[in-house]
Design a protein around this nucleic acid. Structure first.
Lengths: 205, 205, 205, 205
DNA sequence: CATGAATGAGAATTCATTCAT
DNA sequence: AATGAATGAATTCTCATTCAT
């Protein structure tokens, strides 16, 4: 029988994850300080080790928690209309996750860019569900002749998610000036589907 | 009257820069170990400090050296033909730099993704020349009606360079499986100019 | 709920201060080695930094601790009789501090002689209380015509304390041969009040 | 046959000693930087080791050079009149050395206060000649009944030189405010001979 | 379970000394 | 003799992890 209730435990765990996400987003895995995390979470240093077995493990659980929260959001995405509409809805869902869980997302994007084999799997696990849904929409689009059929759908999905991430990076890198988060969904869909060349017959898809 | 010749000195400096680039590419600024760098370069710890005044300064000089080598490569890029051809030539030049100076480029990309104000300027200085050339080509393309005119050229240039970086990240992240470096130039140009939607009238531009 | 009792903590702190005083007395601020200090105190290197935030801070706290101990001793000094008797009592109190806290005092005297602006204030704070008491006795002495009135009392106090320090320096410099600590109080009082010229009418004051 | 003339060598040696004295006076033996010394002297680092075999040896030679210069000055001191007059002349000679060779003297005084067995002998060698002359004057004073005969002359001489040093320390410590160098000779003689107690019959001796 | 002091390997940096030129 | 780059032991300080209370 634990001395404290499961609710209290879960709350402490979430406080730690939130504090860790914020610290990791700001300073990266190496520079993040456990002292800062426990202080922000309002617990003692030893307590952190009752919940997470190491700094790295804590990092992985932050990624996983981010994935869980994002997945919950994707569930609610309306899934009908044209390929363009469906991709836009997915992009908007991702942006809305970013708005509410910026720290968690930043941790993922940051680490995704550092190409470390140790964290590769965790990142993929995070992106997996989203990537799968994007790929499904694209596959449908290929069927409907709304997406080119000369490239594997998985690669197209990677390009879409990659473009989205790139826009986030530019958003953060520019001090949130360009693109703003509001612009991102349209921008990623246009970039992905239409490209930069002009069209003779208006938008396609 | 120096004890060693300028050539020997320059050689040592380059050995240090190369070793530092490799270590920084592998482990990032924080985790990179000066011990590992000097060992790889075959000099004593103190020698490093005869050439670079701090770890951070060494990092900056690695970025600058990468920029210098890249700039030298861009000089030779053929600059005529259609927008598509010119962008492809720029992409190929960048890929060829990447092939020969992978460590230096990785350091830049890694750090570019970490959004640290301290390194922001150095990164920009590295990317600046390339970005400028890309933007010039795009501006010409807009004039020639080969590029859409409803977005600022600087933003289009950022999207191009962003896509290129994204492909590098996927290249590294996938263990160099997809995309391979050979595929990158075509891929980035197609992605950037054409997008994923099918075309009725063949390629444009 | 600390893992260790406040008493144990205070004990560790005092062990560290004592070890630091000894090391600083022997080698001065520059050459004192933190390794030697923690080894003498029987704690790990990191522990030192749980108690003191830097080597310099440790040094300041050694000075302050010395001042505290000396002040406690001065409290008990009998404060009546002739100027000569009162000065002798003050000198004896200082010597008794020196006997018991030689390391702490040595640190102060050493550093006082190095004229470093960074440590000047700490030294003054250490000497201040003693200097003040000496000056008060001298001022009374002037009133009672037992001390010459043609010099400011603060300068006379400085001369007294200076003579005392000088005798300590000679004590240490001679390998504790001359003067011995037993001789110091008489010597400083005689030197200060009487000087080296012979008297026709015996001692004054 | 050396490539450079003995004069040029001696000049270099003196430049090094002067630069070293200045650096040692400012920063003490530990903190003094050989880089700063060779830069101030306008020679290369290796050159210093052609003249002095180590930092410590350089330090000793600075002390010795200071002693030589002081000794030269003492030679010229007028040596007649009362004990008071002769002591005053010795004090003035020392002050005049201080005025012209402040760096060298500061090095000696600084080190004298740090009680290090390694440097003890060098210090004594520096002070020896002066101490001897002071003691001779005091011995004459005892004969002439101008100095008390109840203390060994060597100890009286030590007290005199000690008082002088103390006044220097206070001079430097106070930012040269009190005592000024002008005041020192009278002050040290009065302190030494008369003390702080008032006299019924005016000055003695 | 929570606590927070103790730990010590590892980090960057300094600088007196050496020695090939 | 003069040079100044190379050296590496020594230094201060950090911080993730452990564990007695």
């Amino acid at each position: 029988m634990p001395r404290i209730s499961p609710q209290a435990q879960e709350e402490t765990r979430l406080r730690l994850l939130g504090a860790a996400a914020r610290e990791l987003a700001r300073h990266g895995l190496e520079r993040a300080s456990l002292d800062a995390i426990v202080e922000a979470a309002g617990v003692a240093k030893g307590t952190l080790y009752n919940y997470f077995e190491s700094k790295e493990q804590l990092f992985f659980e932050v990624i996983a928690e981010g994935a869980r929260r994002a997945a919950a959001r994707y569930e609610t995405v309306a899934d009908r209309g044209s390929t363009r509409e469906r991709l836009r809805a997915l992009a908007e869902a991702d942006v809305s996750v970013l708005r509410e869980e910026e720290d968690f997302i930043k941790v993922v994007v940051r680490e995704a860019m550092s190409f470390r084999p140790e964290t590769y799997e965790a990142i993929l696990e995070h992106l997996g569900p989203y990537l799968t849904r994007v790929e499904a929409v694209i596959a449908d689009g290929v069927q409907a002749k709304e997406v080119r059929d000369d490239l594997p759908t998985v690669q197209l999905a990677l390009m879409f998610v990659g473009s989205l991430s790139m826009l986030y990076v530019q958003h953060w890198g520019s001090g949130k000036v360009w693109p703003t988060l509001d612009e991102v969904p349209d921008l990623v869909v246009a970039t992905f589907l239409d490209g930069a060349a002009p069209r003779w017959k208006g938008k396609v898809g």
